[in-house]
């Protein structure tokens, strides 16, 4: 679910070529995001799960899958071990 959420954002908003995700070990650094682009991407997750992800620049050296796994562990750490259903979180007005 998290991977889909992030991929959807990257393809539709950050204009990342969808074909890049065919590569199983694609690195975050190969997505073509600058540092601002990376934190905008993380905001998609932060906004939904209500916390700020620490130390974002370390993701640049990870694979996409490793980043998603790390983000998921952080989400769980903030939600009593659960990965909440994002549909249960409404987006407050003015979030964007």
């Amino acid at each position: 679910m998290l991977a889909q959420l992030i991929k959807h954002y990257l393809i539709t908003s950050a204009k990342v070529d969808p074909a890049k995700f065919d590569q199983p070990d694609i690195k975050v650094a190969d997505l073509g995001l600058d540092s601002l682009g990376l934190i905008e991407m993380l905001f998609e997750v932060e906004d939904k799960f209500g916390f700020q992800i620490a130390d974002p620049m370390r993701y640049q050296s990870m694979t996409f899958d490793a980043m998603v796994a790390d983000i998921e562990s952080q989400v769980r750490a903030h939600h009593n071990g659960e990965l909440p259903d994002i549909a249960a979180f409404d987006s407050p007005a003015g979030a964007r």
């Binding site: 601002l36 934190i39 905008e40 993380l42 905001f43 932060e46 906004d47 209500g50 916390f51 700020q52 903030h78 979180f89 409404d90 407050p92 007005a93 003015g94 979030a95 964007r96």
Partner: peptide, 23 residues
């Protein structure tokens, strides 16, 4: 507006008050 609405909203959402757009 978002900050105040979220802080005053339900408990589940309250923690989101401090998460604002990075830009």
């Amino acid at each position: 507006a978002r900050y105040c609405a979220t802080l005053g909203g339900d408990e589940n959402n309250r923690r989101r008050a401090a998460v604002v757009h990075p830009l």
